[in-house]
């Protein structure tokens, strides 16, 4: 059952990314570019995605997942420097290429060679992150 839910979720995610136009890098960069010809689409995608998710979160308390043991624990509201630094790095890359991890994967079948190059670089970035964390800790030990 877990595999079925995962496939269903992935399919809905991929279909949503495709029909929303979020695999078109010009729409993402157009939304980020407040000084250009601003494209509002991304705000509708975000808003639309948050609605079913907010309903789902409301169903969580007092229940168990249909095919799992526990729901994710509530997060500690701790703003770490990794969160800020990582999000800033991610944002810079997102602005440069107009791609984030979901759309980069969803567009592999039709985006052409440069999407593959992007995903390869993204996987490399993910692979070096554990050692990046170690270096960061050595450079400035977390309090």
């Amino acid at each position: 059952m877990r595999l079925l839910y995962a496939f269903l979720a992935g399919g809905l995610f991929g279909a949503g990314l495709f029909v929303s136009g979020m695999t078109d890098t010009s729409k993402v960069q157009g939304w980020l570019d407040v000084f250009g010809e601003w494209d509002p689409t991304l705000a509708f995608v975000m808003g639309g995605a948050i609605i079913p998710m907010a309903i789902a979160w409301r169903l969580v308390p007092g229940r168990k997942p249909l095919a799992g043991d526990t729901f994710p624990a509530p997060q500690e509201p701790k703003i770490s420097r990794e969160l800020v630094l990582g999000s800033t790095m991610f944002g810079a890359g997102w602005g440069l290429a107009g791609l984030c991890p979901g759309p980069a994967i969803a567009s592999l079948s039709y985006g052409g060679m440069w999407h593959w190059v992007f995903v390869a670089a993204m996987l490399a970035g993910m692979a070096i992150t554990p050692s990046l964390r170690v270096r960061l800790d050595r450079l400035a030990p977390a309090e």
């Binding site: 059952m1 877990r2 079925l4 839910y5 995962a6 269903l8 979720a9 992935g10 399919g11 809905l12 995610f13 279909a15 949503g16 990314l17 495709f18 029909v19 929303s20 136009g21 979020m22 689409t41 991304l42 705000a43 509708f44 995608v45 975000m46 808003g47 639309g48 995605a49 948050i50 609605i51 079913p52 998710m53 309903i55 789902a56 979160w57 169903l59 969580v60 168990k64 997942p65 249909l66 095919a67 799992g68 043991d69 526990t70 729901f71 994710p72």
Partner: peptide, 20 residues
């Protein structure tokens, strides 16, 4: 964009409520 967003959010809801 809105239709796609709703699909994405429904995917997230399935993953959360199904697999936790």
């Amino acid at each position: 964009g809105l239709v796609g967003g709703l699909l994405i959010g429904t995917g997230g809801a399935v993953y959360l409520l199904g697999n936790g």
